[in-house]
Structures are given as C-alpha cells and as structure tokens.
Design a protein around this nucleic acid. Structure first.
Lengths: 205, 205, 205, 205
DNA sequence: CATGAATGAGCATTCATTCAT
DNA sequence: CATGAATGAATGCTCATTCAT
C-alpha cells in the first residue's frame, strides 16, 4: 500500500477524501438554498450525501464551517469576474455595468444550483446564501478601489458602497422573481441609476 | 394612589399584564436583532425577561406571533410618518427626503430600545427586524404611489422601489455603525442619490 | 347578610356552591367519556364549565378526586337497583336476570349522558367510566352475597364474580355497539349463560 | 472469541443494538403494565432502562410504536399456542380447555417478565397489556372458527366471544392475584363454566 | 369565594457531537 | 478513515397548581 502510494501520490484515499468533501459541499449548498442557513441542520446535509453522519466531522467542524467553505468557494468563483471588470474598465460606467452584469448573471447561475425548487416558506428572513455574502464584501472593496483609482467621484465611499450593494441585492432579488429574469436589463437599470445617483450625491457633499 | 384609582380604574392585574407583555416584546426585539428571527428561540426571549417560561404562552402563541406583534407595532409607529411625508410633499425631492429622514430617524430610535447589546456577532444571516419588514412594504407602496401621482418619473417602479429599499437598508445600517450616527446626513445622501439616479434610469428606459 | 342567612339557611352562596360543583361534575363526566380519564385534563373540565380555572380547586383537589366523586355518584344511582333486584329475587335466575338487566339498562342510559358523539380514537385502553368502576365493585359484592345466601351454588365465588363481571363488561360493550342495542336480549343471554355455567363450574369443583 | 466470531459474525454493535432494543421493550412492558398505556410516557420507559433519552428514538418513533412491537411480540408467541389447540382439539371441551390453559399459562409467564413491581396502584384504568390486546382478537377469531366448524353450538357468536374474553380476562386477573396462582385450576373452571354456559345460552336463543 | 395570570416541572422530540468498532 | 449508535442538552409547548386581587 505504501508502495502504491509512492507511484500514485494522489491515491484512492486522497481522491475519496476530495470526493467526500465535495459531496458535502454540494449537499450543503442545496440544503442552505432550500431551508436557509438557520433551518438547515448538519443532519440535513449528510442526509443529502451517501456518507455517514460521523464522516461530516472529518471534514468540517460544524455547520458554520461548511458555510464558510461555501462562501470561500463562491468568492473564489466570483472574484475573478469582478477583477476582470475592474481591469477591463476604461470608464466608471463600463466598470459599473460589467460589475452589475457579472453579479446578476452570477445570481442566475447560482439559482440553478439547487435543483429542486426553492422552498418559499421563509417568511421574513433574508438568508443570504454563502456566495452572496462573499460577494458582498468583494463588491464593497471593488467600489472603494474604483473610487480610490479616481474612476468614481470621491464622495462618501462607505455610503456609496452600501448603496450599491443594497441596490444590487434588492434589484437582483426582484430580477429573479421575474419571468424570464433578464440580467442584462437589470444591469442596465442599476448602472444608469448608480451612475447618475453618484453625481447627485457628490454635488450634495 | 386612591385618587389615581378614581380616574384610572386599572388594577394591579391589568398593569402587570401590560408590563409583562411589554417585557416580552422588548426582549423579543432585542433577541431578534441580535440573533436573527430564525436563530432566536422562544426560550431566548423569555430568558430575556424575568418571567417564567410558561408565561410567554399567556401572551403569544409562538415566536411567529411575537414577531407579528412587533411588526404591527413598528408599522403603527412608522406609517403615520410616511403618510405625513407623502401628504406634505410638494416636490418629489421633498417627499424622498422626508421619507428617508423619517426612516433613518426611526432606525435611530429603534436602536436605543434594546438596551444591553448582548452578542454582536450576527454570523451570516441578515435578519431584518420586524419593524423593518413592516416598513419595507410601506415604503414600497409609498414609492409606487408617488410614481402614480406623477411626482416621480414613470420608470420601472418595481426596480425603483427595490433599489430605494435596498439602498435605505444598507445606508441605514452603515449610518448606525457611525459615531455619532447622523440621520439627516444619511437622508441627504440617499435623497440626492435616488433623485438623480431615477433620472438616469428613466433615460435608460 | 348574617340575618338573611338566618332566614335562609341555604343561601345564594350555598346554592351557587352546589351549582358549581354540579357543573364541574357534569363537565367532567362528559370529558372523561370523550377523552378518557388519562387524556382528560383539569383544563378540559373547567373549559366545559363557565368557571375559572382556580375555582376547580375550591371543589376538588385533583382530577383524581372528581373522578372519585363521579364514581360515588354512579354507585349511588346504581346500587339501589342492584339492591332491589337482590331483595325481589326468589330464584337465583331471577336475581341474575334483574341484575344483568339493571346493568345493561344502566349502560344504555349512561351512554346518552355525553351528548356529543364519543371520540372513537382510543386505541387499546379500556378506560372504564367512573360509574362502571363503582358498579364493578357493587356487582362483585352482590354476587358474593347471593352465594352466601344460598341462592347460588357454593362454588369458587371469587372466580364466579369475576367471570360474571368480565362477561357483563364485554357483553355490555358489545351490546352498545349494536344498532339498536337491546339490553333485554343481552340480559337474557348473560343470565342463561351464567346460570348453566355455574352448574358446570360447580360440578367441576 | 475469534472462534465464536467465525460461527457468529455478529459484532459488539449488533449485540448492543439488540440488547438495547430488548431493554426498551422490557421496560415498556413493565411500565405499561404498571401505569397503563395512556399514563405511561416515553420518559417513563427510558427511565426504566440505562439508556439516554435520545436513544429511545433510535429504536421506536413513539410510545405507540413500542406498544405495537410488544403486541406483535405477544401475538407471535401466543398465536401458535392457540392454533395448536384448535388443530389438536377433537371436542369443543378439549379445545376450550387447551385455549384457556394456554392463555392462563401465558399470563403467568408474562407476569414474571417485569421484575420490579414498582407501583401497584393502578387507579381506575384497566389497561390491557399489549399482549392481551393482540390475544384478544385471536381468541375471538378462534371462537368464531370453532363455532363455524360445528364444535360449538351456533349461538350468538359475537356475544359468546365477548363473554369468553371478558371471563378469561377477569378470571385470569383473579388467578394472578392468588398465591400461588394455579393456571390449570383456572382453566378447568373457565372451561366448565363456558361449556355449560353455552348450552344455556343456546337454549335461550 | 371566584378569578385568571404566573409558575415551573414535565413531556415529546430533535440534533450536534463523540467514539467504539 | 468511515461508520452509525449513544448521548444529553436544548427546544417548543402543556398543564396542574398557587395566589394576589
């Protein structure tokens, strides 16, 4: 066995481990999307895999930890998009549009991850999915960065970032409720809104 | 005391009942704000009072019901402010400013209700407080009403409403984190942002 | 007030007290019949009256105690019937028949006390109503008395009494399930069965 | 131990599981007998074992389910006895005697299962043990079968079955209270009683 | 006495987590 | 490492009972 390992640095064990980890993450994503973070239980997650309950704890110490892993994953996939938008942008308008567009398209893709239809009985809690939370922070940083690089007027960047984030979240949610959802239209709306909004806010400063 | 009783034939019982109900509501407000609706338990709420566990059920049938009571309460106190803003407004700008101002001041007042800020780490769930949820709908209706009355340009009013709400929420939360929080400044920011933002979005339509 | 009491030895108070007690007993009978002794709660009983919960404890110390009061009541009404049968009887057959007949008719009457239809979801527990338990003992004593007075053969009177009681209970229950229930037919069946049964058992001794 | 394992590939886990299940069933039997089905709580049952409360739910979903398991168990052990009696019987008398004898002996065995007789006061509820209920139906069917096969006179078989069952229950209970209990004597009494009783009832038809 | 709110023990059940296998 | 049974703390909720009014 040790010999085999010598020839096969990523052995069965390693592959199984990675597969198990992935299975848990995948199940967790689905479960979080369906039940919300709070309502979801570790049992729900492992029930969504073929693994035994104890196995969960070989990979994650708690529900919280899976959640963070998912967030990291979401961030890892979304960050490059944002960064690309930032690098590509020659005008602030273009940056804004690319960023919003990336976000709304990301939302659309994410929505399709949890195969079963979302359970709509979540009365008043906005349980952001792990990915959205990761994005949240990334968006904020991007906006502050843009402001610093002179692309955006130097207004109250904290309020600006929050305004954009709140706007993106709510407009994104509204977009998802439409049939069919049109991420590009939503991005155009948000871009135009924010672009002029900033001017107004700047004058007000 | 006997004199007071002549004018106010309210016995100890009634007073105790009202006090208990208030204590539960107050504790619930705090608990919901700190842990989020989903994570909060009925026991968390009663633990936040001096009452026994069974007493909770003399006043509310469930966590849901306290939540609704809080929402109603919040709505009852906030709606008049919004309505006044609507009636008083001669320009859309004035309406927006009054509404945002009312909202941000409302947030400030609310914040001071839950005295001891037990445990500030709200991990990943953005639980809107009951009051905010009640307000949420009211704000949306106000905006649509304003649009219909011709005060606001006739753009995608659904996206507009959501944009304003998201913006107000996030900017409001950011405001609360500042020391000292300045509701008027936040209202000016939001008003100017939205006023011009709408123009941009309208042109984009 | 004390004067009034002098002229009116059974004053309003006393009448109210008796009425309350009766109201509780009546409600209890209904509740026990519908839910069974175990499932019934003191709250169920007081809910069946116009009284407040605390008032219950002015009359009875517990559910157990109401139950006993009901038993006593049942016994008080059934005992005379049995005694009459005993005194009237010239033959053992006649005694048996009168006793069974009294019992089955008693069952029929009792059944009509709980106005609402019985809740049939009582899977495997034979919760005898308080009255039946009282009767139980009375029947047993009557039979032993009859044996002692020479009306019945002197066989194992303990077994005999139990045989009759078990028989009466089950046949009575079966009778109640028939439409229409015929107490007289059941009494004839039981009488004939027991009369000859005893002979067999006696010979066997 | 390794040898035994070769013949019996049952690990500690399996043995522990079986032992736990048995412990729960044993405790449940005792608790049901002592408190009655309705009054018994799941906690009473687990308190009667060395297990933790949650463990109960690894084996049974509810009190009801343990009860059914006990019933099945009782029936499984008693039914063959009854069937044997039925097949072996050449006369109705023989059948009756074998059946009663089987029943009374069964009661005796059962009684010895629940070791510590915790709390003998069963206030007013005649809870049949799960086993008796299972038997109940079997007895009834046996009697109807006997009647159909011509072994018993064709009288009101419903009343007959109930008469026998009630009689067997009460006489059985009385037998258990005697020291020492004599199942054979009880069976003789019951057989003789029923045999002649039927004749009486038949004539009465 | 009647009232009915407060009390807190108790119950069924779930669940994260551990650990022997 | 994987397994899955055992654990017992925690939860929502009910209820008998008390006691100030």
């Amino acid at each position: 066995m040790s010999e085999a390992a010598a020839f096969e640095p990523i052995g069965k064990r390693e592959r199984a481990k990675a597969a198990n980890r992935d299975a848990i993450l995948k199940a967790a994503r689905r479960v979080f999307a369906q039940l919300g973070y709070e309502a979801a239980t570790v049992r729900d997650i492992i029930r969504g895999t073929e693994l035994a309950s104890g196995t969960f704890y070989n990979y994650f110490r708690s529900k919280e930890e899976v959640f963070e892993a998912l967030s990291d994953d979401g961030a890892r996939r979304f960050k490059p998009l944002l960064r690309a938008a930032r690098e590509r942008a020659e005008t602030f308008e273009q940056y804004l549009h690319d960023a919003f567009s990336a976000y709304f398209h990301f939302l659309l893709e994410e929505r399709n991850v949890g195969e079963r239809p979302l359970d709509e009985r979540q009365p008043h809690v906005r349980t952001d999915t792990p990915e959205m939370i990761a994005i949240y922070e990334e968006v904020r940083l991007s906006l502050e960065d843009a402001a610093m690089r002179g692309l955006a007027p130097r207004i109250d960047s904290d309020y600006l970032a929050h305004a954009c984030i709140g706007l993106a979240q709510e407009v994104g949610a509204a977009m998802l409720r439409r049939t069919p959802p049109d991420a590009d239209a939503a991005a155009r709306f948000a871009t135009a809104f924010v672009l002029r909004g900033i001017e107004g806010a700047a004058r007000n400063d």
